[in-house]
């Protein structure tokens, strides 16, 4: 299952935090900053999977392959779009490549809702950001991966606002994202 979904920008400022377990606020912040430290130093050619941050690694080191440890978060997947990092922390029951596609759908859905989405849209409408995620994951289990259905579900909750005028431009440049797109057509 999925343990957490995080979005933060190039400076490490959170734009969305969603933990599917109850966690102390300070621990949440530490985890975010640990993951940011890991992700910020990666070159663009590197793969989209992070080693476990120290907070998570310390407790999972002791696991042996024989004992079932599927409950343990073991995979940190990320994608980088323009100014934003999208992070998914999950257990080994999720497929790593499929999670990359999942993030892609998430961003595409946001793009569909905001029309050429950019970081500002997400700052000012973080409730919509949560709603979109809520249409895709409930309680750490993925419930929807089809773009249209996600967008439809969010729109059913009410009109999605555009960002206030005069607040900047430039989107997440969907056209340019997804280094692996040429290699596999996901979903």
């Amino acid at each position: 299952m999925i343990n957490a979904v995080l979005v933060f920008n190039n400076a490490g400022q959170p734009r969305l935090t969603k933990f599917y377990t109850q966690l102390e606020t300070s621990v949440q912040q530490r985890l975010i900053s640990e993951i940011f430290t890991l992700v910020a130093n990666r070159p663009n050619s590197a793969c989209n999977f992070l080693p476990l941050p120290p907070l998570l690694a310390s407790s999972s080191k002791s696991s042996t392959p024989t004992t079932p440890h599927n409950d343990m978060p073991s995979l940190v997947t990320y994608r980088h779009y323009a100014t934003l990092y999208f992070i998914v922390i999950s257990t080994s029951t999720e497929s790593p490549l499929a999670l990359l596609d999942f993030i892609q759908v998430f961003v595409q859905a946001l793009d569909g809702l905001f029309e050429n989405v950019c970081e500002l849209d997400l700052i000012f409408n973080f409730e919509t950001l949560h709603a979109t995620l809520g249409e895709m994951i409930v309680g750490g289990v993925v419930i929807e991966t089809q773009l249209e259905k996600v967008v439809e579900g969010v729109k059913a909750q009410g009109k999605v606002a555009k960002r206030p005028v005069n607040e900047g431009k430039g989107g997440l440049s969907l056209a340019g994202f997804g280094r692996g797109d040429g290699v596999w057509a996901g979903r």
Partner: peptide, 26 residues
């Protein structure tokens, strides 16, 4: 110097309307 987050903590401000924030990718 790499460990920005732990040293200073995250200060919330939304600065990203300077459009060259996009270009300034490491």
């Amino acid at each position: 110097s790499n460990d920005r987050g732990r040293m200073t903590g995250v200060v919330p401000y939304a600065e990203s309307d300077d459009s060259d924030a996009e270009e300034s990718l490491r």
